[in-house]
């Protein structure tokens, strides 16, 4: 039977396949990973510092990039994870391998873009005058928890998408709403305290807040925030794995 080393070979092959297929027929390749957040950063900075003038954060572009990068990964990872089983129908119907690998590898392939974009975020922060501090060491943990969260959500939504193909539109709509409900272009302090729980228990919002603590304020994120982030993310991952394992038996009949 399979040993764990083979699992890793399979997972990395699937991630590589995703990455290769996406970039093989593009002339700009990975550059797109950088262009999208930079353009969004420019537009949002223009609107909120020149048009609306609602925020007086001295480095609004870094502030907004801290929001955009975790959100972008969440939105793209979740959508592509959701459609991954249906998109790989021929594989799932015809080849026996652990089906969990499909949404997980899709999310992790998006994780490669996340890595590139985190690099961009750090570069922009350094160029804008922020310096390396010891809390940067927490960034891998914070983003790893976000990846776990998106994997869990995608496992569940990908399994449902096999039975009800409308799920992908639900996910796309949810992403549009979350763009406003995650503090991308506003700060935590302007949120009325009675709504704070909505943000602290939302892992994407929690990652954004933690990023700002670390990069902009050079301090550790509140322990309570990290605990909530870890608890929600790991719970969602386990729930996703469980839902997936319950629904996968009939995949072949519905694809």
């Amino acid at each position: 039977m399979r040993v764990s080393g083979n699992y890793w070979f399979l997972l990395s092959s699937l991630i590589l396949r995703d990455f290769r297929v996406r970039y093989r027929n593009m002339s700009l390749g990975v550059f797109w990973s950088l262009l999208n957040p930079l353009v969004m950063m420019g537009v949002l900075t223009f609107i909120f510092t020149k048009v609306l003038r609602s925020d007086d954060h001295p480095n609004f572009h870094v502030f907004v990039l801290c929001g955009l990068i975790p959100f972008n990964f969440f939105a793209l990872g979740w959508v592509s994870g959701t459609i991954s089983i249906v998109a790989n129908a021929s594989l799932v119907k015809r080849v026996m391998f652990p089906r969990e690998m499909v949404p997980i590898s899709t999310v992790l392939a998006n994780g490669l873009h996340l890595l590139i974009q985190i690099g961009l975020l750090l570069a922009v922060a350094l160029v804008s005058g922020y310096t390396v501090n010891r809390w940067w060491a927490l960034l891998p943990l914070v983003f790893a928890l976000e990846v776990a969260f998106v994997c869990g959500l995608s496992l569940a939504s990908a399994a449902f998408d096999v039975y009800f193909r409308d799920i992908r539109y639900v996910v796309e709509s949810a992403n549009m709403l979350l763009f406003w409900l995650v503090p991308i272009f506003y700060s935590f302090t302007v949120i009325p305290p009675k709504f704070h729980f909505l943000y602290q228990y939302n892992p994407v919002a929690a990652v954004v807040l933690a990023c700002r603590n670390i990069l902009l304020e050079a301090k550790a994120p509140p322990e309570s925030l990290l605990v909530k982030l870890a608890a929600v993310s790991l719970a969602v991952l386990l729930a996703g794995l469980w839902i997936f394992s319950r629904l996968r038996r009939r995949f072949a009949d519905y694809l």
């Binding site: 399979r2 080393g5 083979n6 070979f9 399979l10 092959s13 699937l14 396949r17 594989l91 391998f97």
Partner: peptide
Amino acid sequence: ENVRMNAALLGLS
């Protein structure tokens, strides 16, 4: 690339 991918799917190391 397909050969290697398929071998991985079939459970080879």
